[in-house]
Nucleic acid binder design. Structure first.
Length: 844
RNA sequence: GCGGGCGUGGCGGAAUUGGCAGACGCGCCGGAUUUAGGAUCCGGUGGGCAACCGUGGAGGUUCGAGUCCUCUCGCCCGCACCA
């Protein structure tokens, strides 16, 4: 009598064996093709949740299957361990961030082991380990040497709750902090930047090199980078008396063809010129009012959709370079200082925002590019000079049209990318008052953080030499342990840390006390896995070249911009530093859907968390793994429910019983050597159909249907056993089905498969080291096939015909089968679809 | 506003190129077995008495549409005063 399926007995046993035998340890094997499957590493914030289970189970199935297919598979894990939650938790529990972090890592690690994930633990990295973060500092120095590091004063995002600055990418939604969701404030501070904008064009262009990425992610990145083509135009500023001063102010515009319609000129409230222009004039008070009002607004208020626009005249004018017209300079709160130049040429007839502003303040709205069928086009006809100062429109028109009142350009095509746009820019170029230009929305990456639990920035402030990099030989700059975050301390409160001497002149100097954004740590961890224990270099180029790029990356959509954009940037810089030879780090990307409960994301505060550990304790890891994959395709959101778990457990027990009984029968010889009857053929056909189906489904990440196919094979096995009595069963064939099922199920339910393979089927070596079952096309061949017969689009009958029967014979049989529907009617047309159906069209 | 995506039984979801809609599982119904079971096994299960009707809705292309085209309704996500 065979044993019952008992996951709790077998799972722990195999986890220990796998660890003892190093089943998942890999090295560079020149004799095998490599495959690098990576899941985004976790933040050690506490116990693992269902999102982790889903993410890592998907990756584990892929890793295990590629391994069985003969690939040398790199499948590592680590922890993104620096960051604010550790500090907050330390304050709450009156301990040290490191204590909390390492305790959580241990907890998560043991959960991952209990889930049966096939990680090579020798390659594990923890970003707060000195052996890791020193290379992050080294990277900083390389970037600096290449001119990609800059420290500068600028308006920055400040999270008052996290008490640190944030990168643009970390301000999300309605202007809130990505981590704590507090409203972000603007402050003028001197900070460290990575010059990601130097790579803006390439980061955009190379999205085309990523056919294996979801369209959604690429679109989000493209929008974030935000490339605009247009022109820079220089306007000459007039002095207080209205006379040209010789000083130029540059604007960026995507529509130089509308330049003749520019009736006013705008400066952002934060623009450095504003104060100078109005200082001591009668306009100062009104302008200051606008400036102060804008400064008080939080980012949240700023992003509240369509707001009323406010502005004030500065009393000054600029000269429009195309027609010499003097246009008034206003300060307006809808002009952004951090996009373009902070100054804008306003064309109210062609831009809705300018239109609204002009209407609010009674400014001119001269038509300049109008629809071809607009009465204004005919009325203004050939007129080149600007005499119409207003339009009878309800809103601005920014589409393509004909240029009017535009000097020598009148009559030309206007619009985005139009001939008029090129012609006007060429004309400006000749006068040296403009040029073709491209503008990006992407800002440089602000990487400094005013927090303790991070990677110290390896720089020194010397009163004599200025900013000096820490010499490579002095790395790492160690994060001191005796900083008490529970008292609100940072590195800036720690003289033992910041008091130093200048590496250049030897004089007294102050060490930088900011740490790096945690996203700098996660921008290169996938490379470190290739050579995780290297103390001599960030990695050995041969090893990195063997494993990289990552063939399949799996993680949440929340990193569509943040982590994925930063990592692409790092890869390109490493390439330019000669550390790699390719352009993109992640060849294929799968963004797995979220695991929700009652329509919401699971969280402790909502009290709707289903703990994976509880499910493992009840059903075992294999059931949990299969269930979370079976519920939905990997890229779709998933609504968690405990309902179906019993069904999966039931199925695994059915597989267990079938394989056990098949093994027993084979051992006792209670059956026949080869039956060759219809039932046997059918089982063999199912076995091979499912081998093909599961292989194909895994390749397409349709893991839910792969499992469904395995259930079908199980059903077919039971159907066979119900149809054929003990003693008459085809033993080799039954064994083939049992072995195939065991191997096919191995990536999904690795513990049960191992137990069945080694202990029940009595094999010698781990199922996870076996060759993936091979599909035999001859096994699924059939002599006869059933065709549906349609009459006027409706299925009216079925016929079974020999494979390869001539078309006219098929038609004859088909017409007989549906004679009741065809009799007495004219058959107008018959379509035969090979192997599928016959479609008959009759008149009437 | 711009961009991406989704709408299929009571539920989760199948249906690679247009070819028998609802695979597979849950749930439910019936039966067998059992001292008993929320265990196990076998069978049934879109709606309708039927002809027929059914993939958010309305058209269209086609012998044939969940799939392609046009319009439309609803929901989700990302960015958003970006000049």
């Amino acid at each position: 009598m065979s044993r019952q399926y008992d996951p709790h007995v077998i799972e722990e046993k195999w986890q220990e064996v796998w660890k003892r035998d190093g089943v998942y340890d890999v090295t560079e094997d020149a004799g095998k093709p490599k495959y690098y499957v990576l899941e985004m590493f976790p933040y050690p914030s506490g116990d693992i949740h269902m999102g982790h289970v889903r993410n890592y189970t998907i990756g584990d199935v892929i890793a295990r299957q590629f391994s069985m297919r003969g690939y040398s598979v790199l499948h590592p894990i680590g922890w993104d361990a620096f960051g604010l939650p550790a500090e907050n938790a330390a304050i709450k529990s009156d301990s040290h961030p490191a204590t909390w972090t390492y305790a959580n890592i241990e907890k998560q690690k043991s959960s991952f082991v209990r889930m049966g994930f096939s990680y090579d633990w020798n390659r594990s990295v923890v970003t707060c380990d000195e052996g890791y973060y020193r290379w992050g500092q080294w990277t900083f120095l390389q970037f600096w040497e290449r001119g990609l590091v800059e420290r500068r004063m600028s308006p920055v995002n400040w999270c008052p709750s996290c008490k640190t600055v944030l990168a643009n990418e970390q301000v999300i939604g309605e202007g809130v902090c990505w981590r704590c969701k507090s409203a972000v404030e603007k402050r003028d501070l001197e900070q460290w930047y990575y010059k990601i904008t130097e790579y803006a064009q390439e980061l955009l262009d190379d999205l085309d090199k990523l056919p294996g990425w979801p369209e959604r992610v690429k679109t989000m990145q493209a929008n974030w980078i935000g490339r605009s083509e247009g022109a820079e135009v220089e306007f000459e500023l007039c002095d207080a008396d209205g006379e040209p001063s010789g000083r130029m102010i540059t604007v960026f515009t995507t529509r130089p063809d509308t330049l003749f319609g520019c009736s006013f000129f705008l400066l952002a409230p934060e623009h450095p010129l504003v104060h100078e222009l109005v200082h001591g004039t009668g306009y100062a008070a009104a302008v200051a009012d606008v400036v102060e009002r804008a400064a008080k607004e939080t980012a949240v208020e700023r992003s509240m959709g369509e707001r009323e626009k406010h502005g004030a005249f500065t009393g000054r004018y600029v000269v429009n370079p195309v027609n010499g017209e003097k246009v008034p300079v206003w300060v307006a709160d809808y002009v952004l200082m951090d996009y373009g130049t902070g100054a804008v040429m306003a064309v109210p007839s062609g831009d809705q925002r300018d239109f609204e502003f002009a209407r609010a303040y009674g400014l001119d709205v001269p038509p300049v590019v109008v629809r071809h069928d607009d009465p204004l086009a005919a009325e203004l006809g050939e007129r080149c000079d600007c005499h119409t100062r207003d339009v009878p429109w309800e809103s601005a028109y920014d589409g393509p049209g004909v240029m009017v009142q535009s000097g020598v350009f009148t009559g030309m095509q206007g619009g985005k990318g139009s001939e008029g746009m090129r012609a006007v820019t060429e004309a400006l170029k000749e006068k040296d008052q403009g040029r073709f230009a491209i503008n990006f929305r992407l800002r440089d990456w602000l990487i400094s953080r005013q927090r303790y639990w991070g990677n110290p920035i390896p720089a020194i402030h010397c009163p004599t030499c200025g900013l000096v990099p820490v010499p490579e030989s002095d790395l790492p700059v160690r994060l001191p342990e005796d900083v008490d975050v529970t008292k609100g301390e940072t590195l800036a409160d720690h003289p033992g840390f910041y008091e130093t001497t200048c590496p250049s002149c030897g004089g007294d100097a102050r060490r930088e006390t900011d740490t790096m954004d945690t996203f700098t740590c996660s921008s290169w961890y996938y490379l470190r896995y290739a050579d995780a224990r290297n103390d001599e270099a960030i990695w050995d180029t041969n090893k990195a070249d063997y494993w990289m790029p990552v063939d399949q990356y799996i993680g949440g959509i929340e990193h569509a911009i943040l982590h994925l954009l930063y990592s692409r940037f790092f890869t390109k810089v490493f390439r330019d530093l000669g550390l790699l030879t390719y352009d993109e780090p992640f060849t294929n990307l799968l963004t797995q859907g979220m695991v929700k409960k009652d329509g919401e994301t699971m969280s402790k505060s909502k009290g709707n968390v289903v703990a994976p550990e509880d499910m493992i304790a009840r059903y075992g890891a294999d059931t949990l793994r299969v269930y979370i994959l079976f519920m939905a395709p990997p890229d779709k959101d998933l609504e968690w429910s405990n309902e179906g778990l019993d069904g999966i457990y039931r199925w695994l027990a059915r597989v267990w019983r079938f394989v056990s009984e098949a093994a027993e029968e084979s051992a006792s010889g209670c059956g026949v050597a080869a039956a060759g009857d219809d039932a046997a053929k059918k089982l063999r056909r199912e076995t091979h159909r499912v081998i093909a189906k599961v292989s194909d489904d895994i390749a397409r990440f349709q893991l839910n249907t792969a499992i469904a196919a395995l259930m079908e094979l199980t059903n077919a096995a039971y159907e066979y056993r119900n149809a054929v009595p003990v003693g008459s069963r085809d033993l080799p064939l039954q064994h083939e089905a049992a072995a195939a099922l065991t191997m096919l199920i191995a990536p999904f339910a690795p513990h049960m498969a191992e137990e069945l393979w080694l202990e029940v089927l009595g094999s010698e070596s781990s199922v996870h080291c076996q060759a993936w079952p091979e599909f035999d096309p001859s096994a699924i061949q059939v002599d006869e096939i059933e065709l549906a017969v349609q009459v006027n689009g409706k299925v009216r009958g079925k016929v079974t015909v020999a494979v390869g029967l001539a078309e006219e014979d098929i038609i004859a049989v088909a017409l007989t089968a549906v004679s009741a529907w065809v009799e007495g009617k004219e058959v107008k047309k018959v379509v035969v679809v090979a192997g599928k159906l016959v479609s008959v069209v009759v008149a009437g």
